[in-house]
Design a protein around this nucleic acid. Structure first.
Length: 578
RNA sequence: GCGCCGGUAGCUCAGUUGGAUAGAGUACUUGGCUACGAACCAAGGGGUCGGGGGUUCGAAUCCCUCCCGGCGCGCCA
């Protein structure tokens, strides 16, 4: 509808340019908006107000010219000039009626478009260290990233989703250490578990698997390991990791390390699976080392003259790209930094042919954004080909108290527990209702208690209600005719509102994709459900006289379709009964 | 100290490429099931859009400044 009016206005402006009423280079963008009040028509444009400055005439005068130059359309019943210079459009009934059959014919494809033109985009999200189960903070990134990927796909992009597995860093060494120490406890050794290690119960589970698999073969005297440790906790850990490596030997250490990693990644994959998040690919950080990709990336930077040596380390001159300081890629001890791996990863993404990279990170990584963008540019990437979207923290409250979240202490609410408490649908919709940059207060008591008050049920209920009507239709032996439906009796305000709401859906999807804001969709669905429930309560379908029955049934059939499509993009189910 | 994000109804939040009288959910008050699902609907009260200044026909939206909250400023990841 909006597009129709836009093209009418465009034609009018062209006409005015032709007869020299408007300058050729006015450069005004045509905006058409849904009006808030019915007195202002259905859709309105402020184009005359925007043009006023450039043309040097009063907005109302320009508006008059535009209205005069507007081509006729059977979809527009009336055009009015209003207020300071708004042009208000009133839609004809037939324009609305057409929308219903358009939706019913398009079915699951209604709302999809080709605005993305098949552009190859990679969405990377969650990518949490596999050192513990996912918590509700990760859930937010998962819900957002997955919904965004689905929305982009609907808008015609060629989308690839990926999870970057940080399986090469120090955190993973600590995980392996923690597992081995628990394993020693299972072997019967007595000592107090180091507080620097991961405390969560899942460490026990991995240790048990290790014990079942290897028996007592990996048992060593722990005393050597915990003797004469330094006071600094970080240094203590590094010393213990070193000790574990020495005692176990390279092969056995790797065995523990890999087992821990495999189990953790599997756990994370399962959690995300249940959350209806499925990746196209899980990409291993260590594969970048093994394939020589890191070496390759550093060579590329070297060739382009972006590196220098200082203090035994190799630095990337990121200040040349606006970073506040230069960053180390190779440490004095020869090992590469996490940053170096990330540079290689981004180079790899480009080499795989992706034209647009979207990274979704937790807000605590925002200090890292400039550095990665710098490296990306240094490697020859376009400045608009990489978007880093930050998801703010979800602060948890339980009983009015803030819940601390720390992987190390094992004190956190897992995504799995959340799903179990409130269900996947409610959890996904709850997340979807908040835009990512908004700091989020997550009241666990409320989320749990709300399970029947959650807005998701409001939307799902609309869908189930409609399905119920069609079930009733069958039991009552009523049939929809195959012939063309006469919509002329569809004139009630609730019906018009509902049709307008449905016809807005494709724009909402396109806007959600363009602005990476899937939350628009969640709000839209709630509003659509409101329009439907209002209609439902005011009018009858099956019990109405024949003339209005069929068009109304067709209308709610269209509503059902739009709600199902929209919920699908958010990873929420559309139940036929509830 | 510097940087990123936020501050909109009692609470949780939409609305920001500048548009007409700032919205929703929730909570509160009142009313609606003898025809298709009351997990619903209808009506009502509730606001210095953090404070102040500026830009203009017009500002929650843009600029400046201050206040409050979250996060970040490693040869960690």
């Amino acid at each position: 509808m909006k597009n129709l009016i836009k093209s009418l206005l465009e034609e009018a402006l062209n006409n005015l340019v032709e007869n020299n009423t408007l300058p050729r280079d006015h450069g005004a963008q045509i905006h058409v908006e849904k009006t808030r009040q019915s007195a202002h028509g259905d859709l309105a444009s402020n184009i005359a107000l925007v043009l006023a400055k450039a043309v040097g005439k009063s907005p109302r005068e320009i508006a008059g010219d535009i209205v005069g130059a507007l081509p006729r359309s059977s979809d527009i019943s009336r055009v009015e000039l209003a207020g300071p210079g708004f042009i208000n459009f009133f839609l004809s009934p037939s324009a609305r009626w057409q929308q219903i059959e358009k939706i019913r014919a398009a079915k699951a494809t209604y709302g999809t478009s080709n605005t993305g033109r098949g552009k190859k985009v990679m969405v990377e999200f969650v990518s949490a260290n596999p050192t513990g189960p996912l918590h509700v903070g990760h859930g937010r990134g998962a819900a957002y990233g997955d919904a965004l990927a689905r929305v982009l796909k609907a808008a015609g992009y060629s989308v690839h989703s990926e999870y970057y597995v940080n399986d090469a860093g120090r955190q993973m060494d600590i995980l392996a250490l923690s597992v081995w120490v628990r394993y020693l406890e299972l072997c019967g050794l007595e000592f107090s578990f180091p507080k620097e290690c991961y405390q969560g119960d899942y460490i026990w589970d991995i240790a048990a698997t290790l014990h079942r698999q290897e028996g007592g073969r990996l048992q060593h005297d722990l005393a050597i390991l915990i003797q004469g440790l330094p006071n600094d906790p970080e240094a203590r850990i590094d010393r213990m990791v070193e000790g574990a490596k020495n005692l176990l030997g390279e092969a056995d250490y790797l065995l523990v390390f890999d087992l821990a990693k495999e189990i953790m990644v599997d756990l994370i994959r399962q959690d995300l699976n249940h959350f209806r998040v499925n990746y196209d690919q899980w990409f291993s950080e260590r594969s970048l080392v093994d394939s020589g990709a890191i070496k390759h990336a550093i060579e590329v930077l070297e060739e382009r003259g972006h590196l220098y040596q200082e203090g035994g380390a190799t630095w990337f001159r990121s200040t040349a790209f606006g970073d506040e300081k230069d960053r180390v890629v190779l440490r004095a001890n020869g090992s590469h930094t996490y940053f170096a791996a990330d540079i290689a990863y981004h180079l790899n993404k480009v080499e795989r042919g992706f034209e647009w990279l979207i990274n979704i990170w937790g807000a605590d990584h925002h200090g890292y954004v400039t550095r990665v963008k710098s490296a990306f540019q240094a490697l020859g990437g376009g400045s608009d080909a990489l978007d880093v979207l930050l998801v703010q923290f979800a602060v948890l409250y339980r009983g009015g108290e803030k819940v601390s979240m720390s992987t190390r202490s094992g004190d956190f609410v897992t995504l799995r527990a959340l799903c179990k408490e409130v269900g996947e649908d409610a959890a996904r919709f709850f997340y979807a209702l908040r835009k990512p940059e908004q700091h989020m207060d997550f009241d666990l008591d409320l989320a749990k208690e709300q399970s029947n008050e959650n807005p998701v049920y409001y939307v799902q209920y609309a869908h189930a209600r409609i399905c119920s009507v069609f079930r009733q239709m069958e039991t009552k032996g009523i049939e929809m005719s195959d012939s063309q439906i006469d919509f002329s009796s569809l004139v009630e305000p609730e019906e018009m509102n509902l049709i307008d709401e449905l016809s807005r859906y494709p724009e909402v999807v396109a806007k959600a994709a363009a602005g990476h804001e899937p939350h628009q969709l969640a709000y839209y669905l709630r509003e659509t459900a409101t329009c439907f429930h209002a209609f439902y309560n005011a009018h009858h379908f099956l019990n109405a006289e024949a003339a209005v029955r069929e068009p109304r049934l067709a209308l709610i059939d269209a509503v059902r379709q739009v709600i199902a499509n929209g919920l699908g993009l958010l990873g929420v189910s559309a139940p036929e009964m509830m």
